[in-house]
């Protein structure tokens, strides 16, 4: 833990942040673009690889830590934010990135998402949203449209409104909310740089099409649009903007300065001093 910054960090390129393990993802999967954008952002920030920890849960996108040359933890379904929160609290000097999909983050992990937004630890949360469970072969996720009828579990559609990650993050108190697109690695990379530099909880909602179970999403390329008016800083204005959005707006939507979470501090005591308080 006393490791000094590697002298070669500034010469690292995006490919040096790849582990060499071949991804399990299908050809054409948007996640390949996210991996490219992420390694580009890490190289841009010149982050020492041994001080970087990538934490994920379960799902196609949660396989990403294995493909990055950093420390990582591939945990259980839905709990990545909690695991990352414990790591960041114990080791605040590390750069901790959390990665996962829409099912992992918003269904089984939904409660942790709410409270990670509230807790405002200095974490970057990259959610790769393809509106489907890919690893279990094509079920509806919380972000799936209510009338999508291609899933065997919900042949008539879920009938439930979509979960709106950006609106819910705002309501739960997140201070950095952005949306990117896997088909735009350069733009996504810039958002990731800004998110990692943000001193608090940063949500990067990434639209990443699943060509296998949602082939119709190939049209996202033509539907996304960049909003370069800059982020809202007022939560009320941001709420209007996010609620009126078609879900395909790319860019930094909301950014606000908040005090990051900090552990309780107290003057040091010896064990003997603490034990003396137990004398009868």
């Amino acid at each position: 833990m006393t490791e000094s910054q590697s002298p070669t960090t500034s010469t690292l390129r995006a490919r040096d942040y790849k582990s060499g393990v071949t991804p399990v993802w299908c050809p054409g999967c948007g996640h390949h673009g996210v991996l490219a954008a992420l390694t580009r952002a890490l190289a841009h920030l010149e982050l020492p690889r041994e001080r970087l920890a990538l934490i994920s849960g379960i799902g196609c996108s949660s396989r990403l830590p294995a493909y990055v040359a950093a420390y990582g933890f591939h945990g259980v379904h839905g709990r990545a934010l909690a695991l990352a929160g414990g790591l960041k609290a114990a080791r605040p000097e590390l750069t901790v990135l959390v990665l996962g999909g829409d099912g992992d983050g918003f269904s089984i992990g939904g409660n942790h998402f709410l409270h990670a937004c509230r807790r405002n630890q200095d974490l970057t949360y990259v959610v790769m949203d393809n509106e489907v469970y890919g690893m279990t072969k094509g079920q509806a996720s919380p972000t799936t449209a209510p009338d999508w009828q291609q899933a065997k579990l919900t042949p008539h559609g879920t009938g439930m409104p979509r979960f709106l990650p950006t609106a819910i993050a705002l309501a739960a108190g997140a201070g950095f909310i952005a949306r990117g697109f896997s088909g735009d690695p350069a733009g996504l990379s810039r958002l990731l740089v800004e998110a990692i530099e943000y001193p608090g909880f940063a949500l990067v909602h990434v639209l990443t099409p699943c060509p296998t179970f949602r082939p119709e999403h190939r049209d996202w390329k033509g539907r996304v649009h960049v909003d370069d008016t800059g982020p809202s800083t007022d939560p009320v204005a941001a709420a209007r903007r996010i609620q009126a959005d078609d879900g395909k707006t790319l860019g930094l939507l909301f950014r606000r300065a908040l005090t990051p979470w900090r552990a309780e501090q107290a003057p040091a005591c010896t064990l003997e001093e603490i034990e003396s308080g137990l004398l009868a």
């Binding site: 934490i55 933890f73 709990r79 695991l83 990352a84 414990g86 790591l87 609290a89 114990a90």
Partner: peptide
């Protein structure tokens, strides 16, 4: 899971 994360961090 927080405990697992902290322990992974060496604590």
């Amino acid at each position: 899971n927080m405990v697992i994360g902290a322990s992974f961090g060496g604590v």
